[in-house]
């Protein structure tokens, strides 16, 4: 594996290898000195064409804990916004000697362009491209789910997949790179995924995806899934007639207080809530749900660093062995 562009390309074995490596990295993160020498002398460039402080600092922390040199290149407001092309930027990074490029870009497929052209030779990590994919987010979600399941079952998470885990993903599937990456990855790992959204926010052809689709959140919650992942919904979608009003959206597809109250039932005792952040409280999720002990949101953030360490380590040290 030279690049991480999409979770669609990952086999179950590869995904489990990343998750298992992330467990080792998590052990490092629990130590007093959170640092490994693995990538000393190697350069990781965070190439961000979109503002995302949380993802950028997660990758930055991951690279630094592996002792890599980190260059943060916020392409917004730089020469890029003055018309410099992705090709020129990539060639500049190649000349600087980047060993890995972590790219966040508003255009779907931009990481593929870096990986498949001769502009740059570095390992490419997709940190979210348009409405396509966000593979490290899905990996950290899988990691979080795997740990939760292991904890409930009282077993070790290392080596495990997600067979039988039932995950409901709710919200703007159409525009969500997180949803896409999660559908491919979680199903590859054996989970059963149900997408819940208004029909307007589901992609054309979603019925061909390896998951169930429902318009009815209450029905999807009826059999007490293991996890409910709430996706961010932009209020502006209302202006493009994806839904009539934020109030109606919240009532039908939000995890509000009333719906969250169902989690008190015994069959929901192990159900967790995930959210990739940033949350829009009061729209897709109520504060009571977001701040409850069911919420894994902060664990997701912590696990994100471990997973990104694993990805950088596997991509970059493999390259070292090859050369």
């Amino acid at each position: 594996m030279k690049h991480l562009l999409s979770t669609r390309d990952l086999t179950a074995a590869e995904a489990i290898q990343i998750l298992d490596t992330a467990e080792e990295m998590a052990a490092v993160n629990d130590r007093e000195v959170k640092k490994l020498p693995a990538l000393r002398g190697r350069t990781v460039v965070n190439l961000f064409f979109e503002d995302s402080t949380r993802t950028r600092i997660s990758f930055e922390a991951a690279a630094k804990r592996l002792s890599a040199d980190v260059i943060n290149f916020a392409a917004k407001g730089s020469s890029v916004s003055k018309g410099e092309s992705l090709k020129d930027t990539a060639q500049t990074l190649e000349a600087i000697g980047a060993d890995a490029v972590v790219i966040r870009h508003p255009a779907s497929g931009a990481p593929h362009r870096l990986a498949t052209t001769d502009w740059i030779d570095a390992a490419v990590v997709n940190a979210g491209d348009g409405t396509h994919e966000h593979p490290t987010q899905a990996l950290l979600d899988a990691f979080t789910l795997r740990r939760h399941r292991a904890q409930v079952a009282g077993i070790d998470s290392v080596g495990a997949d997600l067979a039988g885990t039932r995950v409901v993903i709710v919200g703007d599937i159409l525009h969500s790179r997180v949803a896409r990456s999660n559908v491919w990855l979680l199903t590859t790992l054996g989970a059963k995924v149900t997408l819940v959204a208004p029909p307007t926010l589901l992609p054309y052809g979603v019925e061909q995806w390896p998951c169930d689709v429902s318009y009815d959140l209450d029905a999807a919650l009826a059999d007490a899934p293991d996890a409910v992942m709430m996706l961010r919904v932009q209020a502006e979608r209302m202006n493009a007639s994806y839904f009539p009003s934020t109030a109606e959206y919240s009532r039908l597809w939000g995890l509000g207080d009333e719906r969250f109250a169902r989690f008190a039932a015994p069959e929901f005792k192990d159900t967790v809530i995930l959210h990739p952040g940033p949350m829009v409280r009061g729209l897709e999720i109520s504060s009571a749900a977001a701040d409850s002990e069911r919420s894994q949101v902060l664990r997701q953030v912590a696990n994100g660093v471990s997973v990104r360490m694993a990805v950088l380590y596997l991509l970059m040290s493999a390259k070292e062995f090859a050369s």
């Binding site: 491209d129 348009g130 396509h132 790179r177 995806w209």
Partner: peptide, 18 residues
Amino acid sequence: AQMNEGAVSAVLGLPGWP
């Protein structure tokens, strides 16, 4: 719109041209 709206656009996350 960026490409034909269909199974491929859904996966690629590119706005569809129906």
